[in-house]
Nucleic acid binder design. Structure first.
Length: 282
RNA sequence: GGCCUGGUGGCGGAGUGGUUACGCAGCGGACUGCAAAUCCGCGCACCCGAGUUCGAUUCUCGGCCAGGCCU
């Protein structure tokens, strides 16, 4: 599509942002990148913890530069939240200092969920009511924002505005049948294992990074790491990586189904047919 | 041919005379700065037949099937 319209591609995949795992995150190949301009692929180091907000800022800059050249931009990827940030907006919340975030986590662990939630309810009753039980990540975030900004996360979020004007973009969902998707994911993981995914994971592990970093959470890292340390046989590691990927696909389908409900869907599997269906939408 | 053990939801695996653990897979859902993350929810399954019983997945008998052992 980029070639057909003279466009440039912008990454909207939270993991393809990182340069360390080219194979395991299925990043565009060097050959692909040579064909048309690609942006935001492999631009981050695994030690950097990118976020939806940081991505949004970078994406807007990229989109601006591209439009400055008069070229159409094609945002591609699998991170639903990133698309949501672009099209529906992301609350303009000041960055929360790492120290505050860490303090919030510590408070949660110390107080336990019940007490922590009760405290949160005093500052941000809506968040406390809305966030489901067990969801430490969101509970902590809400508290961190409240303590860091003195304002409820829910209030910040209520002011969200889209990053892109509604008339400025069109969205299309690529949604092949699930069974086919699962089959392909299984095959893809197997070929990744053959194509050096293990070496990538070994190199990443050798850097001895904090396990909480986003890049460390890429699908397959944990499974192949267990294979490297002998805790899992190659077959077991592959099966686990495949299973985790299927779980992810399922979550993605749910997001697509509900959050991108109005986007037209292309359900073919092979690129040629997909392209045909895509053109039919225009 | 004989003896033994066992047959529980897609799989693994508890258990009980009456309200049938749990894990995994699968499915549904949520999602505003870790999102390939985080979290919530969903399963009339007890091999077949007869009997005992107010009531059998659970007890008895028979059958079928599986595994093991023996001849």
């Amino acid at each position: 599509m980029a070639e057909a319209v003279g466009g440039e591609i912008v990454n909207a995949d939270s993991m393809q942002l990182y340069r360390d795992l080219r194979v395991l995150t299925a990043r565009p190949t060097l050959g692909d990148e040579a064909r048309v301009p690609h942006h935001l692929y492999g631009v981050a180091d695994a030690t950097d913890a990118w976020s939806a907000g940081r991505w949004l800022t970078a994406a807007r800059e990229a989109l601006e530069r591209i439009s400055g050249r008069g070229a159409p931009a094609i945002v591609a990827g699998g991170t639903g939240l990133y698309f949501h940030a672009l099209t529906e907006g992301l609350a303009d919340i000041p960055p929360v200092a790492a120290l505050m975030a860490a303090a919030a986590e510590a408070a949660f662990d110390e107080q336990g969920e019940t007490v922590f939630r009760r405290r949160l309810a005093e500052g941000d009753p809506r968040a406390a009511a809305r966030i489901m039980s067990g969801d430490r990540q969101r509970l902590v975030r809400a508290w961190a924002v409240f303590t860091a900004t003195g304002r409820a996360l829910s209030d910040w979020q209520a002011e969200t505005a889209p990053a892109l004007p509604a008339a400025g973009w069109r969205g299309v969902v690529l949604a092949p049948p699930r069974a086919e998707l699962y089959r392909r994911c299984d095959a893809r993981l197997a070929s990744m294992a053959r194509a050096g995914a293990l070496d990538e994971v070994a190199a990443l592990l050798a850097r001895d990074l904090a396990p909480g970093l986003p890049a460390m959470k890429a699908l397959g890292v944990a499974a192949f790491a267990d294979q490297l340390t002998g805790r899992l046989s190659p077959a077991e590691a592959l099966a686990r990586a495949q299973r985790e990927t299927r779980h992810y696909v399922k979550r993605q389908l749910t997001w697509l189904r509900h959050r991108m409900k109005s986007w037209p869907r292309v359900e073919a599997c092979d690129p040629d047919t997909q392209w045909g269906q895509f053109l039919a939408l225009a």
